[in-house]
Amino acid sequence: MSALPTPIRCNSRPRVGGLVVPWISYEHGGHATFGTIDPVKAHRALAHRLCQVCGQRLEERFCLAVRPMDVRIGFAPEPALHPECLAYSKQQCPMLSGAAATYRTSSATAKHPAGRPCDDPGCSCPKIAPDEGHSARSGRPADDFDAWMIDIANYRLKKGPRQPNVLLGLDLAVPVLRIRPIRRNPRPDVAELLTLVRSLGL
């Protein structure tokens, strides 16, 4: 399958190695770290209906990259995307494309974007220490992902039950126009495992 062209919306975004740096990525001193999220930008994207990749306003339909755990908790913690920005991300993001088998480790993400720990006490780097969710996933096998397409009329924020000013993400208990798989991790063949166990006399 040929690569999709970069969405026109992303033409003004900086690039690293030819890849678009998502708008919500943490950037510092001219450097950006893929796989990190700037919490200030993420909050702004959620509150103002901005795409997490290009940073522009969402239109009549938006997409979410949804994991099984998101469905269980009832919300998607990351901001939405334009359909074409999600299509681009599916090809270029190692987590969505299936190229990455595991999540990045917390120690790698916590480093300065230049690839080394930041020793500047006035730097905002410590403010992007991995959240509890990232720490729990650090180094673990990648999740399955589905693409949910939703009408903008059903864009609904999920807020903290005791802290209404805290945006948890986007509510998933809304009508969904379409759900399509993005990535699936290989599952063990149960019959094959049972045959192996029997052959071992277990």
Rank of each mutant, 00 (worst) to 15 (best):
G17Q: 04
A87F: 09
I182Q: 00
A32Q: 01
S124C: 12
N185V: 14
K158L: 15
T36A: 15
N11V: 14
P79K: 05
P121D: 07
T102P: 06
D38I: 07
R140Q: 15
R61H: 15
R140A: 15
Q163P: 05
D131A: 12
L194Y: 07
A42S: 08
M95S: 03
T105I: 14
R72K: 09
P161G: 06
H48Q: 15
L81V: 00
T109I: 13
K127M: 14
A173K: 02
S12I: 07
V21F: 11
C54T: 02
A147L: 10
R57T: 11
P126E: 05
P22C: 09
P117E: 05
L177C: 04
S124E: 08
P22W: 08
R180D: 14
I150Y: 08
R72H: 09
G160F: 03
I152Y: 03
N165P: 03
S89V: 09
L167N: 01
C93G: 07
R15I: 15
Q92T: 11
S124T: 01
I182A: 07
Q163R: 06
I37P: 02
L200K: 02
G29R: 00
E132P: 06
N165H: 01
Y103D: 07
G18M: 12
V71S: 04
Q56E: 10
P7S: 10
P164C: 04
V190P: 09
E60A: 14
I73K: 08
P7C: 13
V66Q: 02
G30A: 11
A147E: 04
V174T: 00
G17M: 08
A129M: 13
Y26M: 10
L64V: 01
G18K: 05
H82S: 03
L86R: 00
V40S: 05
D38M: 10
S97T: 01
S135C: 13
V174N: 04
V20Q: 05
E192L: 15
P83A: 13
A110S: 05
H134C: 14
I37G: 06
L167C: 01
T6C: 13
E78I: 10
C93Q: 02
D151N: 05
R178H: 12
T36R: 12
A108F: 11
L58V: 06
V176S: 06
P117Q: 11
A76K: 02
K41E: 12
A101R: 06
H112G: 08
L50K: 05
P77A: 10
A108T: 02
G122D: 12
C118L: 11
R184S: 10
S25M: 12
S25W: 07
P175W: 10
P188T: 02
R72T: 05
W23I: 08
I8C: 13
P121Y: 09
F75H: 01
Q56S: 13
W148Y: 15
A99K: 04
M1E: 05
I8G: 11
A76M: 07
C93P: 04
S97Q: 02
T36D: 12
P39I: 05
E78W: 09
E27D: 10
G29I: 06
I128K: 00
A42R: 01
L4C: 03
G18R: 05
